[in-house]
Simulated assay, not measured.
Amino acid sequence: MRRVLSSLVIGGVVVGAVVGCDAESGTPVATSSAPAPLWDPCSEIPDDAIRAVGVDPATEELGIGGVHQSGWEICRWRGGDKYSVAVFSTARTVSEFEQKPGQVDFRDVTIADRTGRQFKVEGASMDLRCDVLFPAQQGVVQISIMNRASLEPEELEDPCVYAQRVGEVFVPLFPS
Rank of each mutant, 00 (worst) to 15 (best):
G16S: 07
Q118Y: 05
P159G: 15
D127M: 04
F174I: 08
V13C: 03
Q142E: 08
D22N: 14
R51A: 05
G63E: 03
H68D: 10
A149C: 09
P153M: 14
P101Q: 07
G102Y: 08
L133S: 13
G167F: 09
G12Q: 10
S25C: 01
E154S: 04
V104C: 12
P35E: 01
S89I: 11
V161M: 00
I45D: 08
V121I: 04
S7Q: 13
P159H: 09
D105C: 05
I64D: 12
P101I: 06
K82H: 13
D127Q: 02
P46N: 09
I64N: 08
A17E: 14
R3G: 01
P57T: 04
E24G: 15
P57A: 06
S125H: 13
G102D: 11
L128A: 11
I45P: 02
R76H: 01
G54N: 01
S176M: 11
V29T: 01
M146A: 11
E73Y: 06
P37E: 02
G167N: 13
I143D: 12
G123H: 07
W72M: 02
L156T: 10
H68R: 11
V19F: 05
I10F: 11
R3Y: 09
A36N: 08
P135H: 10
C75R: 05
V132A: 02
G71K: 03
G116D: 02
R165L: 10
V19Q: 06
E122Q: 15
Q137Y: 06
H68I: 07
G116R: 04
E73F: 08
C75V: 02
I74C: 04
R117M: 07
R3E: 12
T31V: 04
